[in-house]
Design a protein around this nucleic acid. Structure first.
Length: 205
DNA sequence: GTCCTGATCCTCT
DNA sequence: GAGGATCAGGACG
């Protein structure tokens, strides 16, 4: 069952929490990759840490558009981060997907991640835990790129499946841990990061 | 294990 | 012209 409009019409923090345990699917030309969402962060209106805080710009216009769309941005000179827009049109909010547990297409993820990093040991396979354990890593592993900016996440080739989806039976009940967000300097004390308690695929403890 | 740094460039002031 | 919602490798203990 694909997450639909009703899901994305919830408030941003609720969506960030309810994303946990859901399945991000990308059917790319190279093949499918699927990861379970295990870590998210919420970015709210009137939140100085949010890109939308200073108003709408060319970069952030997706955040101010319809909910349930892709907001992807370039950072630190070399990386992209993947967000899902939330809140009604006109309100700039989003949920950052910070980590996934790889489920399908793991070899393809390995290939993409190894190809992108400039290391001498590119012949050494990355551990599954390291493939998607960070916002920039999962963008590479899933084959997401800036052409996806604004993509409607209720449609192919990139969409999110409910945690109750029958094709994955392994999803057991879990607790949610709430902490402060990673890597920001303003409003760093807000409890807006969420992850599946005890999961070993998150970016940081 | 922890801490530090270089890579690298788009976006906004 | 500055700074950034990051990552990986190396130094050190």
């Amino acid at each position: 069952m694909i997450l639909d409009k009703d899901f994305y019409n919830q408030d941003t923090v609720t969506i960030a929490r309810n994303f946990l345990g859901c399945y991000l699917i990308h059917n790319s030309p190279e093949g499918p990759t699927i990861g379970k969402i295990v870590e998210t962060e919420a970015y709210l209106a009137h939140d100085p840490a949010s890109h939308a805080f200073k108003g709408q710009t060319e970069r952030t216009k997706a955040m101010f558009g319809e909910p349930g769309r892709v907001y992807i941005y370039f950072t630190y000179g070399m990386y992209y981060c993947f967000n899902v827009t939330t809140a009604p049109a006109g309100v700039g909010e989003a949920v950052l997907i910070r980590a996934l547990e790889p489920l399908e297409g793991i070899e393809l993820m390995q290939k993409r991640r190894s190809a992108s990093k400039k290391t001498k040991s590119h012949d050494v396979a990355l551990k599954t835990e390291a493939l998607c354990s960070g916002p920039a890593k999962l963008v590479i592993a899933m084959g997401i790129n800036k052409q996806m900016y604004g993509h409607d996440l209720t449609k192919e080739p990139l969409y999110i499946l409910s945690k109750d989806d029958m094709r994955f039976e392994e999803n057991k009940p879990f607790e949610i841990t709430t902490t402060t967000r990673i890597g920001i300097s303003s409003s760093k004390d807000l409890p807006l990061r969420f992850y599946i308690t005890g999961n070993s695929f998150i970016s940081k403890r």
